[in-house]
């Protein structure tokens, strides 16, 4: 099967999952104590305005009809208006997405740069002092909450030494790179600890694999054995791990954005929660779910591209 038809078969599998995702989000907002109309309206709204909101939200309809309306609205990109921002939810989210996207990709890059080489060094020197110290460092990393890492970097590198700005996003690409360096490092330090832990054992597995022994028995240079036989196979586990860690990565990004005041969707989510801006919470939750689905799909595609065995199934 070609990669393209594989892509579509995966896409089809996502549809039922996503329906449940929408049910969860729908129920989440409907489970609010009290009247969603009151929750979604201004505190000063009149009875007429409330009635209008009820009608607009279809709250006078039975529950399953309401769900139908919700699904229809989701697919037409109509997620209602944000109370906090006084603008359509879709528009608000789209404005904030680039900063979060930039930060996430930046963090992925850092995570790979940190976890990849160290996992290899640890795996190839396993059970030496080098391996032990690398693993200890990451064990500590795993036990450190993201917001604390962020705060440490913020305090010392930004506030004390003034090497970096204490927040914001900037306007040009280079400014983004500069402003988001510490936030990205923050997310990466945590994520790389998660990845590193599993990557080390994957690399060990690959290094001892029979096909690597066989490659060695062929008398190939060590450069080719590592580059062609070990690295490619280890790459698959890296991609898998990155894909699986995407939830952690996004959670980390969310927290980091609040620590460094990055104008992204994570910070927006918290603002929305404190303002009890339910349309926005609903829209953001959905956005996160869509993003994770896309990443999962992308991971599957890259795996299929790297691993010929997956293309057949």
């Amino acid at each position: 099967m070609s990669t393209i038809s594989y892509f579509f078969s995966r896409l089809l599998q996502i549809i039922p999952t996503f329906l449940i995702v929408m049910v969860i989000i729908f129920l989440l907002v409907r489970a609010l104590p009290g009247d969603p109309a009151i929750a979604m309206a201004d505190a000063k709204a009149t009875t007429e305005q409330l009635e209008q909101i009820r009608q607009r939200l279809g709250l006078d309809q039975p529950l399953w009809m309401q769900f139908g309306i919700f699904v229809k609205n989701v697919f037409t990109g109509n997620l209602g208006d944000s109370i906090l921002m006084k603008a359509p939810v879709t528009q608000v989210i789209l404005e904030r997405l680039p900063a979060s996207g930039f930060l996430t990709l930046y963090a992925v890059l850092f995570s790979l740069l940190i976890a990849g080489p160290l996992a290899f060094v640890a795996a190839l020197n396993r059970n030496t002092w080098l391996d032990t110290s690398i693993r200890t460092a990451f064990q500590v990393g795993l036990s450190t909450p993201v917001f604390y890492i962020g705060l440490l970097l913020l305090t010392f590198l930004a506030a004390q030494l003034r090497w970096f700005p204490v927040g914001g996003y900037g306007t040009t690409f280079l400014e983004h790179m500069y402003h988001l360096l510490l936030p990205a490092l923050t997310v990466a330090l945590y994520t790389s600890a998660i990845i590193m832990r599993n990557l080390r054992s994957s690399v060990i597995e690959v290094v001892d694999a029979e096909y690597v022994q066989f490659a060695r028995a062929k008398g190939l240079p060590e450069r080719i054995i590592l580059g062609r036989h070990v690295l490619r196979n280890a790459l698959i586990s890296t991609v898998t791990l990155l894909g699986l860690s995407i939830g952690n990565l996004m959670s980390g990004t969310l927290v980091t954005e609040t620590v460094f005041a990055v104008p992204g969707v994570g910070r927006l989510m918290l603002d929305a929660i404190f303002a009890r801006d339910y349309p926005l919470i609903q829209g953001l939750t959905l956005t996160f779910a869509v993003l994770v689905s896309i990443i999962f799909l992308l991971t599957d595609l890259i795996q299929a591209w790297l691993d010929p065995r997956l293309r057949v199934a």
Partner: peptide, 15 residues
């Protein structure tokens, strides 16, 4: 499948 589609923290803080 649906629940792991949300980042853990996002769903928790939404609840």
């Amino acid at each position: 499948d649906a629940i792991i589609t949300f980042p853990f923290l996002v769903l928790v803080i939404a609840v």
